[in-house]
């Protein structure tokens, strides 16, 4: 012990990401310079900011006086449509994503099926919902059908990918035990895989339900039906009181969905 205390104190620093001091300074300086230049390319117009602030005041004024009554029929129809779109899209997407998710799990299927499933999932996640919605509105016309298809595409990509990851993380030992008792591929999935991923699957489905409702408000802006369509109409008419009412209702719905999914999760998991 005494000998150890005589030793010189050693220095230790965590290894740096960029070893050379010069390179490090160059990289940091370059980043700072680019940041500065990029900032000045954004045109900042004081008059427009001032106008924006006036409009914001108008908007927040309306926000303080939400009007549920004047456009109630439209708002109710929009909300109900959004709820229906959300429910249909989530259920259909879940049904589609289970086979895709199993197919995209490397530990379950041969290479070609894996690649094909991954490709389908990648394509369905390639574009943001808004772009997909614009596409489907162009294909199927305005209205909730385009919206439902949009939500299905987005949800399948989301659920399928995360489900595949959950499947790839299952404990392989029970699967091997099932193989060893002569179980077929289908039975291995039903008894070995699904029980292990079920809690995660329900959790993801509930979360996606939540996302889909909010998403249904967004894609409505490009004509894909639902409460979003009502919202754009109100905006374009400068009816900020109705806009405020709609936004409050969306917040309320998301909150209710949160409470319900929390309860369901407790029971299911």
């Amino acid at each position: 012990m005494a000998a150890e205390s005589d030793q010189q104190a050693q220095q230790w620093r965590p290894p740096r990401m960029i070893e050379s001091a010069t390179t490090r300074k160059l990289v940091l300086g370059g980043l700072a310079l680019y940041g500065l230049l990029a900032f000045f390319t954004v045109e900042i117009d004081p008059t427009r900011i001032a106008e924006g602030l006036t409009r914001a005041a108008e908007f927040f004024g309306g926000w303080l006086r939400p009007d549920f009554v004047t456009r109630w029929t439209d708002i109710r129809a929009g909300l109900l449509e959004s709820v229906a779109m959300t429910a249909v899209a989530t259920v259909v997407a879940l049904a589609l994503s289970i086979p895709l998710g199993l197919g995209a799990a490397r530990n379950l299927v041969p290479g070609p099926i894996y690649t094909a499933s991954r490709a389908v999932l990648a394509v369905s996640r390639a574009f943001h919902e808004i772009i997909v919605a614009i596409l489907f509105v162009a294909m199927f016309g305005f209205g909730p059908f385009a919206g439902v298809v949009t939500l299905i595409v987005g949800s399948v990509g989301f659920l399928g990918k995360l489900l595949a990851e959950a499947v790839e993380e299952v404990d392989p030992a029970p699967l091997e035990a099932l193989t060893a008792s002569g179980a077929t591929w289908g039975s291995r999935v039903v008894f070995g895989v699904l029980p292990q991923v079920m809690p995660r699957m329900w959790g993801l489905a509930l979360y996606r339900l939540d996302i889909n409702f909010r998403e249904s408000a967004v894609i409505g802006l490009v004509g894909a039906g639902g409460i979003g369509a009502t919202l754009t109409t109100a905006f374009s008419r400068y009816e900020f009181e109705s806009v405020s009412a709609i936004l409050i209702l969306i917040i309320g719905m998301v909150f209710v969905a949160e409470v319900i999914s929390g309860r369901l999760r407790q029971r299911l998991l």
Partner: peptide
């Protein structure tokens, strides 16, 4: 190597999967 989230009975019966049809099981 049991399936932890299934019941004892289900785990035992997985031993019969070699002779039980898919839909029955």
């Amino acid at each position: 190597a049991l399936i932890e989230r299934l019941s004892v009975m289900e785990n035992v019966l997985t031993g019969t999967l070699g002779r039980t049809g898919f839909w029955q099981s």
